[in-house]
Measured scan of single mutants.
Amino acid sequence: MEVRTIKVFTTVDNINLHTQVVDMSMTYGQQFGPTYLDGADVTKIKPHNSHEGKTFYVLPNDDTLRVEAFEYYHTTDPSFLGRYMSALNHTKKWKYPQVNGLTSIKWADNNCYLATALLTLQQIELKFNPPALQDAYYRARAGEAANFCALILAYCNKTVGELGDVRETMSYLFQHANLDSCKRVLNVVCKTCGQQQTTLKGVEAVMYMGTLSYEQFKKGVQIPCTCGKQATKYLVQQESPFVMMSAPPAQYELKHGTFTCASEYTGNYQCGHYKHITSKETLYCIDGALLTKSSEYKGPITDVFYKENSYTTTIK
């Protein structure tokens, strides 16, 4: 009895394709271990004539594949690729409408935090270190965002349907971005203890939790000093293409032309909904596939993004 075979390709990165001759009487799992086709788990399936010449994702289970996976995804987590594939199996079914010149995501599976993050990423200057993220990001900007969303979920250790947080998501993504040249110098002034300067680099240099107003941050924000008295913390120097200011959701007025974009969060910790506000020729609110415009805006804002380049204080 002759062994019926077909020729397929296996890959971990969709760049390096490895030619395989597979036995049609055995499952993919018996031949390769966990195997995925377009995100779908085909591990328990036997090869079919229609699979001839198709590319299958496999887990990096030998040295060659491990090197290829690390170079593309910059992670050695053995569960990463499987999590990416199972997320992709959902995100490829989502709709990605162009809204006001940006790629958004039609609401499904509690994905409003991903839509808000995706919209924000198209408006701030950011370059990702893992080629996987950078490639998928370019495709997302062009309207094909399924891979990018699935990668975000995998890097953030999230599953489809789980509630997510924009600030946490951005923080994970910033860790995989090139923020080497970003720098922030802060000064804390206390009447009792004097003053202390701190220099922050990388992710810490672009994120701040405690106030939404970048102007206020430049002037000074009140913080408790270690001595128990009130101290003032203010920005001395900022070198970065953008800054992200966050605070627990509270009524906040966004003035046209003073910011790049913002995240609105309605609801409580267990259950809520994100919308995205962007400042173009007027203010726009993007909620999944829905767009509304207004000249002014007041609502429960939790993150505001500002364009920056270089700032030095005039406070002496």
Rank of each mutant, 00 (worst) to 15 (best):
L163W: 13
C261K: 05
A69I: 09
Y214C: 08
V58E: 00
E125M: 06
L65A: 10
Y138K: 12
A177C: 15
T302R: 06
E239I: 13
S25R: 12
G164V: 07
T266Q: 13
Y73K: 01
G220Y: 02
H51E: 10
D63M: 10
L37K: 12
A117V: 14
T313H: 14
R66T: 11
V188R: 11
V188H: 13
Y269C: 12
K54G: 07
Q30V: 11
M244A: 00
T43A: 09
Y72E: 15
D38E: 11
Q30K: 15
P224Y: 13
V206K: 07
Q216P: 02
Y155C: 00
Y172K: 01
M170S: 00
F259S: 10
K95P: 00
L65M: 07
C261L: 06
T258P: 03
T258I: 08
Y208A: 11
E162A: 12
Y57W: 13
L283E: 13
S310V: 14
A40E: 06
G164L: 00
A115W: 02
T314K: 15
A117E: 05
C261R: 02
I277Y: 01
D109V: 03
I15G: 04
K229V: 06
V189D: 07
Q237F: 11
A146E: 03
K307G: 11
M26A: 10
T266S: 11
P97T: 12
V236F: 07
G161R: 03
Y138L: 13
K275R: 15
T232I: 14
S310H: 13
V58A: 05
K158A: 01
L153G: 02
K316G: 13
Q197M: 10
N157F: 08
A250G: 09
Y28T: 01
Y311V: 08
G210H: 01
Q197C: 13
E253Y: 13
K307R: 13
Y214I: 10
D287N: 07
I223W: 12
K316M: 14
N49H: 15
T192K: 13
L126H: 02
L186A: 15
R184N: 08
M26L: 14
T192E: 13
S213R: 11
Q237A: 09
L153W: 01
L126G: 03
Y84K: 02
F148E: 00
L212A: 07
T192Y: 07
V166Q: 01
Y57T: 08
T292F: 11
K307P: 11
W107M: 11
Y172M: 14
K219Y: 06
M244V: 07
W107E: 11
N147M: 09
L291T: 13
G228S: 03
P60W: 08
Y306D: 04
Y208G: 06
T199R: 13
L118H: 02
K44H: 10
L37D: 11
Q195A: 15
L133W: 00
Q20C: 11
L17D: 01
K183T: 12
K298H: 14
Y297F: 08
E239F: 08
Y274I: 09
N111M: 04
T27G: 05
Q31Y: 07
P131D: 00
F9G: 05
A146P: 01
H256F: 06
P60Y: 03
E296D: 15
S310T: 15
G220T: 04
S295E: 13
W107L: 12
I286L: 07
L283I: 15
T312C: 13
V3P: 14
V58N: 03
V58L: 09
D180H: 10
T91V: 08
S246P: 04
R4E: 04
P97S: 09
T35G: 00
T278H: 05
K219V: 06
H273T: 06
Q237L: 13
C285V: 15
L254W: 03
S181T: 12
A140C: 09
S246N: 04
Q98C: 12
N89A: 11
E253G: 06
M207V: 02
W107V: 13
G101I: 11
Q20L: 03
L119K: 02
I124G: 00
I6T: 08
A40K: 14
E215K: 07
P248N: 14
S50T: 11
C193Q: 09
A177G: 09
K201R: 11
V189W: 09
E264D: 07
Y137G: 00
N129W: 09
V12A: 02
E215N: 13
N14Y: 13
A247T: 09
Q196C: 11
Q122C: 03
T91S: 02
G101A: 02
I315N: 13
A150R: 01
T312M: 13
T211S: 12
N100E: 09
C182E: 01
H256S: 14
F128Q: 00
A231E: 02
P78V: 14
K93G: 04
C285I: 09
D38P: 03
S294A: 13
E308K: 08
G39F: 07
Q197A: 08
S294C: 14
V3I: 14
V166M: 11
S294P: 08
A231R: 06
E239V: 10
G272I: 05
Q222L: 11
G39M: 06
I105T: 05
N49T: 15
R141V: 15
H256P: 08
F9P: 05
A132M: 06
L153C: 09
